[in-house]
Design a protein around this nucleic acid. Structure first.
Length: 147
DNA sequence: AGGTGTCCTG
DNA sequence: CAGGACACCT
């Protein structure tokens, strides 16, 4: 689901787990998961952005996340270990945008500001997509089991 | 006060 | 990932 939405609301999550009785604990745990997912995501982005700068990449236009890039491998291994899901193109676009944001921010020296990542987070939070209905837990589990 | 997000830690 | 502290918002 993270491939589609990085900042899901609790209400959205609830609609995707219709067979789960949500309480404060379960809800906050799910929210926590996505928070952890984001942390990993942004850490990777910063790492590869800084690496690109060290490699003296100049044009951020050529900076993108493709399915055969190292960054994609790291992300896919983390969120989709068994390759159970086909990663949507939209995610690659968002990832590429994130990478470029980090790249230009670091290159501009904005990382001296303690809260330099906040603006990037805000941009990325606007890029969430809808989650396909296939992910609604019951059906999703069935498909995983038969594959 | 309770929900949410981040940072830091293990 | 989970736990906990902390800030921010409602």
């Amino acid at each position: 689901m993270f491939f589609f939405t990085r900042y899901p609301s609790s209400t959205l999550l609830k609609t995707y787990f219709p067979d789960v009785q949500f309480n404060r604990c379960i809800t906050s745990q799910l929210i926590k998961w996505f928070s952890n997912f984001r942390e990993f995501y942004y850490i990777q982005m910063e790492k590869f952005a800084r690496q690109a700068i060290l490699e003296e990449v100049t044009d951020s236009k050529h900076l993108m996340v493709s399915r055969d890039s190292e960054l994609f491998r790291a992300l896919n291994m983390h969120y989709n270990k068994g390759n159970d899901f086909e990663v949507p193109d939209r995610f690659l676009e968002v990832a590429s945008m994130t990478l470029r944001e980090f790249f230009s921010a670091v290159r501009a020296g904005k990382d001296s500001d303690p809260s330099w990542k906040k603006p990037i987070y805000k941009i990325i939070s606007k890029l969430d997509s809808d989650i396909p209905d296939v992910f609604k837990s019951s059906r999703c589990l069935q498909e995983l089991l038969q594959s």
